Amino acid sequence: MFVDPLCPECWALEPIIKKLQLEFGQYFRLKHVLSSSLTRLNINSKKIDSIAQLWEKTATRTGMSCDGNLWFDNPITAPYITSIAIKAAELQGRRAGIRFLRKIQELLFLEKQNVSNLDVLVECANSINLDTEEFLNDIHSESAAKAFQCDLKILSEMEVNEFPSLVFFNENIEDEGLKITGLYEYNVYVQIIQEMLGTKTKPNPLPPLEQFLKIYKLVASKEIAIVYDMSITEVEKKLKKWVLQQKVKAIPGKHGTFWKYIENED
């Protein structure tokens, strides 16, 4: 899975990836390969306008909230630092890297935080219980920089220049991968997995919604709607009842609501 942490389209792929992992997770392993929009390093006002517009359009079209005003209020100045930070988190385990990437996306798209700022990155590492001291050492280390360079090399070799892109490989290393660029309906990805398996496998049953929230901690109405085949109206009606029961907390975004699971202290 080729992702740019600052790309709203990659953020919009999140609900589909969650559903694929829940329904067909035993049939595939997911490897994240990071890119960084180096073109944004020398951003001028014209570029800022077009990036902000793209964010707003993506949010409106996909239902995954992101606020284009970030580019006027708190612009990202060094995007490659964000990618190196994700690689530093990954040095504490693959799952740690994935949790860190998700947290970065939440801070960026929901809270309009500058995720190339070291203080924000350390706070992010803290919030997902990484070893912060180790993370700080790794972010300045050759290991994280090399890991990111390795991702850029894979990008180049596989001629990936649009995000998100998914490349599907089967167990036979000799076979070429199947590259899918952009954002598609969930069923397209299911069809690809089933074709590669050579059988129409049945999806796993989904966990109860409360369990889903407990696993992922913070999810968008859109994520719940896609995973559970519900309308946004149905999702919000159900979750508003849970707010009253103090199971979740509603976090309004610019283009949709997010729901934070409230851990029971008992």
Rank of each mutant, 00 (worst) to 15 (best):
P252T: 11
V219Y: 03
D131K: 11
N44G: 13
G198T: 05
C66F: 01
F258R: 01
Q92H: 07
N187C: 07
A144N: 08
D73W: 03
P15C: 13
L34N: 02
V227I: 11
I51N: 07
L91A: 15
C150V: 00
E234R: 13
T201N: 00
T77P: 08
V3C: 02
I173V: 12
F2P: 12
G256L: 07
K238W: 00
G177D: 04
E142W: 10
C150L: 04
S65D: 03
T233M: 09
L218G: 08
F163T: 09
L197E: 04
I224G: 13
F135G: 13
L20F: 08
A59L: 03
W55Y: 15
G198L: 02
E171A: 10
E223D: 15
I226E: 15
D4Q: 06
D67T: 08
E162V: 15
F72K: 03
T60G: 08
E185R: 14
P252R: 12
P205H: 01
L38T: 07
D49C: 05
N44Y: 00
I193M: 02
I16N: 05
R29F: 10
L54H: 14
A147T: 05
L41D: 06
I86L: 03
K46W: 00
W71A: 06
L6Q: 07
N129Q: 14
